[in-house]
Design a protein around this nucleic acid. Structure first.
Length: 607
RNA sequence: GCCGACAUAGCUCAGUGGCUAGAGCGGCUGUUUUGUAAACAGCGGGUCGUGGGUUCGAAUCCCUCUGUCGGCUCCA
């Protein structure tokens, strides 16, 4: 889309937000308005209707009122007021939220709210200068504080549809009142809108929760609890192969596997600093034997630190690298759980490298290489790198000079590796900056997968040391890394990325032999003994073939249908003709081909 | 945790105060041994998520809890 069209679309969507607000004001005159920006594919407006709860049954009413306003073709008229007049305007109309925004504009020239882009409503404010004059837009009987731009009149706003209503805290703070956010999508033409709705339907088919059920990968149980996925044999194979690959890369990078218990005395987290920061998200475990209180581990680093601390370390030993695929447990708020993207039992392919500050670059570089090996080379998943840096708040621990140095190192590495990166202030962990790698799900929502994090705080708190060349004890720096991240969350994105068609080396069931009748069974045994003796070594070493035989008394058509529904990458069809010719009929997504039996193993190794 | 919606057979769904709650697929049994995306017939299968309430009568209306979905907030 060219820039002109994009600007037009923006103005349309923004104008529709005003039109929706106009309709809401007609229907609920007591409505108090928050903000109404343009978002991806559409717009929203936050409204406070007091005790009135909106639901989707109200959409028809609102949409029909909107259509009325559109039909009237009301011009959008810009006007200006001094900031004090504007505040008076807000008070007269009993609009406390607008009053608050205007106050901020008056004071600081910006509306420092996380979910707001000043561009959406905040006039040309950079945040440093107080404003004297603000602009308004009027259409019909509705007037709103707004920078614009808008379309000329309500008649030219393209095609739209209200999608959903959701609660949203005023200015994104959970201590503020909750408003009702009305979401709509909007496009230049009806065809574009329908295309968008069709894409949403397509995305639903790839939804990992739906595919998880259809492909028999994982399940949930009300008795076990929310956010606690149970992996079936197929799902477990998928996890194991992925984790195995991540482990193989780690071993090549010099990481040694360690193993820790899943609980600990809570003292561990009092030392690490996690208790103060995340204590309310710990699952607590009470011993019946001692007075100690325990917790399920919510992360692995403090445990690993104790392995590091178990003996004196020399600079000659560094970097010391530990690795483990293990599950952590976090008592996430119930409303935040969803599918595999957000769970309470989280399996991480977690590693910790302890190194000298001068070694950080080299360690991180090795891990970036691993990230690329998995996502670029093997899986073909595009990632965006988020450089998560500190902001000005005081929630971060550690020496600010070290922080600056580390953030600079990270930026350089992002540049030298030509990552598709952006910087995000305020996204750092409390102990250090990080590179978070983000992948998108079927609906385009971004999820963090891989992460590489620097940490200056835990070595200090656990008094980790090594003896340097000068005989002095020094603090190592920790580099945390998960390549897959949470395997659960990784799978949620990856299942949607592939729509369930996993590459051959990963597929839980790689091959299914479909028989045409029972006369071929002795020949099928010859095939299965070949398959049993064939082992893949790329990209995961010693990967035995996983196959099954469908010799049920069913039609071939049905067997093909079911194998395809299960997205089994290789179907081998065996009938009397194949037996006679000493061949196999191999069906893949690319089509079907006949192969001499003795070429089967070689062919499979090329997949 | 907050706001809104939803929960009927293994799966996908119909049934919005009134007879014994239905369909398709899957399952089981029998027949059929089949060459490229669903053979045919028969038979099973549900305390309508849980607990309470309203009513002569509740899958259907109200409340609680559990779980799910869309957002918000949070994410070591």
């Amino acid at each position: 889309m060219n820039q002109k069209n994009e600007e037009d679309l923006y103005a349309m969507r923004h104008s529709l937000a005003h039109i929706m607000a106009t309709a809401v004001q007609h229907l609920w005159p007591e409505a108090k308005f928050g903000v109404g920006p343009v978002v991806q594919n559409g717009f929203y407006y936050d409204v406070d209707l007091g005790p009135t709860a909106l639901s989707e049954v109200d959409f028809e009413k609102i949409e029909s009122e909107m259509r009325k306003i559109i039909k009237e073709n009301q011009p959008f008229v810009r006007s200006e007021r001094s900031i004090d007049d504007a505040i008076g305007w807000a008070d007269e109309r009993n609009q406390p939220y607008k009053h608050e925004l205007l106050n901020d504009l008056k004071r600081a020239g910006t509306t420092i709210a996380k979910d707001l882009d000043v561009n959406e409503l905040g006039l040309a404010a950079s945040g440093d200068a107080a404003l004297d004059v603000v602009s308004f837009y009027t259409n019909g009987d509705f007037e709103d504080l707004c920078r614009g731009p808008h379309v000329a009149s309500t008649g030219v706003v393209g095609a739209f549809k209200l999608m959903r209503v959701a609660g949203a805290y005023w200015r994104g703070k959970d201590t503020n009142p909750q408003m009702q956010r009305l979401y709509g999508v909007a496009f230049a033409t009806q065809e574009d809108l329908e295309e968008h709705l069709r894409l949403l339907e397509e995305a639903k088919k790839r939804d990992h929760r739906k595919l998880g059920k259809e492909l028999d990968l994982f399940t949930f149980s009300e008795l076990v609890g929310a956010g606690l996925p149970l992996f079936t044999p197929r799902g477990t194979l998928l996890r194991e192969k992925l984790a195995g690959y991540a482990e193989q890369l780690r071993r090549q990078g010099g990481f040694a596997r360690v193993s820790i218990p899943h609980i600990t005395k809570t003292d561990l987290y009092k030392v690490s600093g996690h208790w103060d920061k995340f204590g309310d998200e710990l699952f607590l475990v009470q011993s019946q034997e001692t007075s100690d209180s325990f917790a399920l581990k919510p992360m692995n680093c403090p445990h690993h630190n104790q392995i590091y601390a178990s003996q004196p370390r020399s600079y000659k030993d560094l970097p010391i690298k530990y690795f483990e695929t293990t599950t952590v447990y976090r008592d996430e708020k119930t409303g935040e759980l969803g599918g595999l993207s957000r769970v309470r039992s989280i399996t991480q392919d977690d590693s910790h490298a302890y190194c000298q500050i001068e070694q950080v670059e080299q360690v991180v570089q090795g891990l970036v290489k691993d990230v690329r090996a998995i996502y670029d080379e093997q899986l073909g998943m595009p990632l965006r790198a988020r450089l998560s840096f500190r902001d000005e708040s005081n929630k971060y621990l550690g020496d600010p000079v070290l922080w600056e140095q580390a953030q600079a190192t990270i930026r350089e590495l992002a540049q030298s590796n030509e990552l598709d990166y952006f910087e995000a202030e305020g996204e750092a962990a409390f102990y250090g900056p990080k590179i978070d790698f983000m992948a998108s799900d079927a609906l385009g929502r971004e999820h963090q997968v891989a992460t590489i994090q620097l940490d200056f705080v835990q070595p200090e708190r656990f008094e980790l040391e090594y003896i340097d060349v000068d005989g002095q004890a020094k603090r190592p720096v920790m580099v945390h890394c998960a390549l897959l991240g949470s395997i659960e969350r990784f799978l949620s994105v990856y299942i949607e990325h592939t729509a369930g068609w996993f590459p051959f080396w990963l597929a839980p069931e790689q091959i299914r032999i479909l028989t045409i009748n029972d006369t071929v069974l002795p020949y099928v045994e010859k095939i299965t003994s070949i398959l049993s003796g064939t082992i893949l070594n790329e990209p995961v070493k010693y990967n035995e073939l996983r196959f099954s035989v469908d010799d049920r008394n069913e039609s071939l058509g049905k067997k093909i249908r079911e194998a395809t529904a299960m997205k089994i990458p290789v179907q081998i069809i065996i009938g009397p003709k194949d037996v006679a010719a000493e061949e196999v009929s191999v069906r893949t997504q690319q089509g079907e081909q006949k192969l001499p039996l003795d070429e089967l193993a070689g062919f499979l190794r090329t997949l």
